[in-house]
Simulated assay, not measured.
Amino acid sequence: MGDLRIRPMTPADVADAERVSDEGFYELDMRTRRGSWPEPQRRTDPHREAWMARTRHLVGTDPRGCWVAEDGTGVVGIATSFRRESLWGLATYAVLPGRQGQGIGKPLLAAALAHGSGCVRGMLSASADPRAVRIYHQAGFELHPQLFLTGAVDRTTIPAVAKVREGSASDIDLMDSLDRGLRGAGHGPDHELMLSTWRLLVSDTSTGSGYAYLDEGGRLALLAASNRRTATRLLWTVLADGPAETSIGHVTGANQWVLDVGLAARLRLDQEGYLGLRGMKPPAPYVHHGALL
C-alpha cells in the first residue's frame, strides 16, 4: 500500500481501466446475483469497445475528473467523472477484486469529487455494493432505490403512437433545454458521443417535448421529457421498435409512469442499486443512463 499513487487517467490507461471495471463489476454481479437472475457475463467485444470509447471521451472532456490508482502491480482502481454546467456526475468507479477494503477507493473517489468543486448538484448511479454505497452516503449523497424491468414485450399491448420522429444533431439545443429543467444541466458534449453510437427519437409538439436514446441493442439508454404524456409516448415507441426481449433500467420511484408502461407490456419488475443525488431531487419524467446520467 505504501507505493499506491492516485494520478489523472490518460488515454493510454483506458484499456487497463476497462479491465479493472470489467473484473470489478463481474465479481460484484457474481456476489450479489439473486437466484432468479441470469448468470452474469463478462463484457462482449462490442460492449468493451463502447465502454472504452465513452471513457476516452470523458478523459478528453474532463481530464481532471478521471483518475487511476496504481501501485507496483499496475492499475488497481479507477474513477471517471465529469462536469456539465452546474452538475457533477460520477460515470464509473471500481477497484479490483481482492484489493477492495485496502484504502484505495476513498482517495480515488475524493480525487473525482474534487473535480466537482463548486457544482451545486451531483448525480451517480450506484451498484448494490455495500462498501461503495457507504462511501457515497458518507460523501453526502441521498440514495434513491433504482427499479428495473425485464422480459419479453407483449406486443398486443402496444398502442398506436404518433408524433415521434428520428432525431439528429439539430435537436441538441432542445435536448439540453429539457435536461436543464430536469437535472439542472444539459448533456452538452456527451450528445456527440451518444449520436455517434445510438439512435435518437424525438417528440416535439405544442403540448410537450422529449427525447429518447436507444442503445446498440435497441434498448432504452436515456429518456427525458417535459411531461408524462410525452415520456409515455416515447417509451412505447422504444418498446415497439426494440427487441422482443428487452430491459428498462435506472427507474426511480419518482417515475411511476415507467412502471405504468412496463407492467402494461408484461415486463417483470425488480430492484437493484441506487441513484445518488446531492442538491437535487430525482428528475422526472426522466430515465437516466448509468454512466452519462
Rank of each mutant, 00 (worst) to 15 (best):
M1I: 13
D3Q: 11
I6H: 07
D16H: 15
S21P: 08
D22C: 12
F25K: 07
R34E: 12
S36G: 11
P38C: 00
P38W: 01
P40E: 10
R42G: 08
D45A: 14
E49Y: 08
A50K: 05
M52G: 07
A53R: 14
R54G: 13
R54K: 12
V59S: 08
R64F: 09
G65N: 08
C66Q: 06
C66Y: 05
V68G: 01
V68K: 09
D71Q: 00
G74R: 04
V75G: 08
F82L: 12
W88I: 08
W88F: 07
A94C: 10
V95N: 00
V95Q: 08
L96F: 04
R99K: 14
Q100Y: 06
Q100N: 10
G101L: 07
A110H: 11
A112V: 07
L113E: 11
S117F: 09
V120Q: 13
R121E: 00
G122C: 06
M123V: 14
S125N: 13
A128Y: 07
A128P: 09
D129F: 07
R131K: 12
I135K: 00
H144T: 12
F148E: 09
G151N: 06
D154F: 08
D154N: 14
I158G: 04
V164E: 04
E166R: 14
E166M: 11
E166H: 12
S170L: 10
I172G: 06
I172A: 12
D173M: 11
M175D: 02
G181I: 06
G186N: 04
P189W: 00
E192G: 14
L193S: 06
L193C: 03
R199T: 13
R199H: 12
L200H: 02
V202Y: 02
S203P: 03
G210A: 10
L214K: 01
L214T: 04
L220P: 00
A225R: 02
R228A: 14
L234G: 09
L235T: 07
V238M: 02
S247T: 14
I248F: 04
I248S: 05
G249M: 10
G249Q: 10
H250L: 13
H250G: 08
V258S: 05
L259Q: 11
D260N: 13
V261C: 01
L263T: 15
Q271L: 07
M280T: 15
Y286S: 05
Y286T: 03
H288A: 14
L293N: 12
